[in-house]
Design a protein around this nucleic acid. Sequence first.
DNA 1: CTGGAAATGTTATAATGTATCAAACTTTCC
DNA 2: GGAAAGTTTGATACATTATAACATTTCCAG
Lengths: 163, 163
Amino acid sequence: MASQALPYRPHNHQACVSQALADARAICREQNARLTPTRERVLELIWQSHKPLGAYDVLAELTAEGQNAAPPTVYRALDFLQQHGLVHRIASLNAFIGCAHAGEHHTGMFLICRNCGNVLELTAPGVSGAIEGAAQAENFRAEDVTLEIAGLCPRCQSEAPHD
Amino acid sequence: MASQALPYRPHNHQACVSQALADARAICREQNARLTPTRERVLELIWQSHKPLGAYDVLAELTAEGQNAAPPTVYRALDFLQQHGLVHRIASLNAFIGCAHAGEHHTGMFLICRNCGNVLELTAPGVSGAIEGAAQAENFRAEDVTLEIAGLCPRCQSEAPHD
DNA sequence: CTGGAAATGTTATAATGTATCAAACTTTCC
DNA sequence: GGAAAGTTTGATACATTATAACATTTCCAG
């Protein structure tokens, strides 16, 4: 069997973070967008794991670090990061996760494990195509797709096989 | 061109409501579930249009009717209706809409017009299949799919053609 | 070095959703 | 019928998520 996707197996997660931050800096430079210290720190916090983080979790971390932060601080940073394709909002969880394909034009598909909470972001052209087709068949002009799959990741299926 | 789907054109909406209520009664009878007056009234309110309704909108209507309702009243009724496949929650809007395919086993796909707010629920086997396939390719056991497409419905495309 | 734009600080509040426990109602079973 | 058990509803309080509005600071172009 092929090896599991990153979130589902041990890995040097610091590499994920570093990569994400490096990508973010490059993307913001290209787009003449200002990746300010707060925005960068929020992105880093979001990338602490492959589990989505709530806005108030981020806020708590900032506050613990002594930052003078209030809800708008966090929501503004998250808005900025979303607009530049650096984080995604998971609507079914009211939480945020780092974008695994920053810079690439893509329609995110999220596999959300209900047991361990990890999320894998996929780009599935077949899925995007089928969705586009279904929308067009109704003469609907699709602009934004929310596709979130809850279930059990490979690891958690083996750990809790009875359901 | 084929005629537009129901939400996008004038129709005798009362027929939608009656049908939905009749279906709900039949389904609850089959499942030995109690469609109490409050639950039925909430379902009817949700079906007032093809636009999703927030829980607090439902609550306001109940209160206006003199019902002794609090938030849990509404959320309980909505939970019941969801569990029996009579309404869907639209995660990207925090709102609820009547299920257009009650009784059928289906994965809902929702086309949400950002202009008029109407929502069309589709069953697209090709889409479901593609999603299932993508999940299986990652050894992920999909249990619940959230698929919501925001965009412009046919009517609103013609009315506001410049974008 | 200054005027306008962008970002942040600050306070308050809106919107959405749940926990908890008590009371009423329904069903079951003797 | 009537008590026991389960389900539904009432009622209060609170938790969580998100935004409005306006003041202040920072940044950058000219």
